[in-house]
Write a protein that binds this DNA or RNA. Structure first.
Lengths: 198, 198
DNA sequence: TGTACATCAGTGAACGCGCGTTCACTGATGTAC
DNA sequence: TGTACATCAGTGAACGCGCGTTCACTGATGTAC
């Protein structure tokens, strides 16, 4: 009987889960698989997670963090602003291609983050990042719903590209990603009041 | 021993499969389920399909036909051209929302239809429809790859919206679909040489 | 027209699979006296 | 400091599930003579 003090097994399960997710790129991860990976019996998982869905949700949260971070870094490298926004979009697609199953799980197992609710939250998330950067780029006087529509359209754009490439319907062509996501499209002739994402 | 002469069971299986797909909106359909639905033993399916994947592929083909038809009708109703294109995009999203599982299967189980290869094919398909309508709308002198990029961007846009709505990440708001997909975005100040989709 | 026969679309039973979850348990840990 | 004890993170065995697929079969059909 190996003993994991104070939530160590919980941590180990999530870590092992993440590794298994990277290895598999299509089917869901099984609870038993994760237990096997950390050398522990399957029922022991239930000391730390009520059921499988909660375990997967924990992995999805982990993945969401990673995605948000990847986008933030990409945006910062491009100097935020319009170019940073495009860069974060490309980062979204590349993250999906690099971590197919994790990406699907983020979308599937995470409770949806309402666009407007994200304004009140403090935790970083792709949705919150999206809202803030689009708000910063919108011309003064743009209505909240207009901004939201633009933000959701941008999300749809990169999400659709990611999914279609994952499904093999669009070739995984790096140049195509770049061509599809450039900074010129949104509010082309507007003045920008730039803000950092903090 | 009920007997289905001359491929009747094949037909019945596809029909029953389509109905089951409409009923379920998330998990995959099982081969046994389909057999049950038509009152036949599971192994009898194997007289007509080599394996489950082929059965599902047949359903996906059926679904693709329906999707292409829905888009074509929507486009025709709007008079083709720029408005027709937007209408076909909205039809894509609404089809996905109305037939969630079928939509997923079309994307997942169908061999990818290469954009350029679709030019040579004669069978109607969403990709072929997309290519033809975007080509018709492109200003004279637009390069083939530019047209392709625009077409794939449009596809990504509606596909992403559809997926995010299906996953509950974006509210299923009809007005939002309309706002997001209007005909103004692509090549805004270009002359159009319109063509019908035949 | 009647009969022998080949074909082949169906059948029920069985295979092995891995899954999520429950159960009664064991035994190491940390604490209270 | 030593001992009794409660806690609770682990265990192996078992549950029932539905799945895709294989197997040897049966019996209706349509055809050749």
């Amino acid at each position: 009987m190996r003993r994991y003090h104070h939530g160590h097994l919980r941590h180990a399960a999530i870590e092992a889960g993440m590794q298994l997710i990277e290895a598999s790129n299509s089917a869901d991860i099984s609870l038993r698989e994760i237990a096997r990976a950390i050398g522990v019996s399957a029922p022991s998982i239930y000391r730390h997670f009520p059921d499988k869905a909660c375990l997967l949700a924990a992995l999805a949260v982990e993945g969401m963090d990673q995605l948000a971070t990847a986008q933030l870094i990409a945006s910062a490298k491009a100097g935020h602003g319009r170019e940073g926004f495009a860069a974060s979009g490309r980062a979204y697609v590349r993250f999906a291609l690099a971590h197919p199953l994790l990406f699907r799980m983020i979308i599937a197992y995470l409770p949806s983050v309402d666009y407007f609710a994200s304004a009140k939250s403090d935790t970083p998330s792709p949705v919150r990042f999206l809202r803030e950067i689009v708000e910063a780029l919108a011309p003064v006087g743009t209505s909240a719903t207009e901004v939201r529509t633009a933000a959701l359209a941008a999300w749809s754009q990169v999400h659709g590209l990611a999914m279609l490439m994952l499904e093999g319907q669009i070739p995984r062509d790096d140049a195509l990603i770049d061509a599809m996501i450039d900074g010129k499209d949104m509010w082309p002739e507007s003045e920008i009041h730039q803000q950092d994402y903090a």
